[in-house]
Design a protein around this nucleic acid. Structure first.
Length: 189
DNA sequence: TGCAGGATGTGA
DNA sequence: CACATCCTGCAA
């Protein structure tokens, strides 16, 4: 299993959001293929970093390849990959993952049996993988980390894009990216 | 098949 | 008081 290199993040945040499609995310027994992402940019009213650095969003301003996990709606976590350059406050939200390994434990964590809807949403993915605030501010580019990102030979057939889901603030830029025809995305359009 | 509503912590 | 969500229940 080849860990993703730091150079990967020399691309724009938007491009990283696309390039992450098909890559693997690994946490202990869990492996998933990233099939849906959203980019959050600087100067973006929908981004948590828009109003500057706070205790909550501090990880967003750290090195590219760092995790940013935030708590939302009083009960859910969402997982982001910080993008560079350091200090800009940009990140990619992991919205959906195809469950590959550890699926039985994921089903327990989710209290659901259906493979398709195990990780097809940002909070569902975190529940299934057991991700919470302990996993904020991790280096995702090291195998020694509890969570890391890995390369894979998987060929992404087609990258589709759309408006981001669940945000009212800001513009409706096409900053959501997903694998066309994939059954594990949260929405097919 | 679709949508309103509730659960409920945190920062603006 | 709005929020980068999810699930249930009830209406059509």
């Amino acid at each position: 299993m080849k860990v993703i290199k730091r150079r990967f993040f020399d691309n724009s945040t938007e491009d990283v959001a696309k390039l992450l499609l098909g890559k693997l995310i690994v946490k202990g027994p869990f492996v998933g293929r990233i099939v849906e992402t959203e980019a959050y940019l600087s100067d973006d009213p929908a981004s948590h970093s828009f109003r500057g650095k706070t205790h909550r969003n501090a990880a967003m301003f750290s090195d590219p390849g760092t995790s940013y996990v935030y708590f939302t709606y009083g009960m859910y976590y969402c997982f982001n990959v910080v993008c560079g350059p350091k200090g800009r406050g940009e990140a990619v939200l992991i919205r959906a993952v195809e469950p590959l390994k550890g699926t039985e434990l994921m089903k327990k964590n989710r209290k659901r049996d259906d493979l398709i809807s195990l990780c097809n949403g940002p909070a569902k993915f975190c529940l299934a993988f057991g991700i919470d605030k302990r996993h904020n501010f991790l280096n995702l580019l090291s195998k020694k980390s509890e969570i890391f990102l890995a390369e894979d030979n998987f060929k992404v057939s087609e990258i589709k894009s759309s408006k981001r889901i669940g945000i009212s603030a800001g513009k409706d830029l096409p900053l959501r990216f997903f694998i066309g025809g994939c059954r594990f995305v949260s929405r097919k359009n």
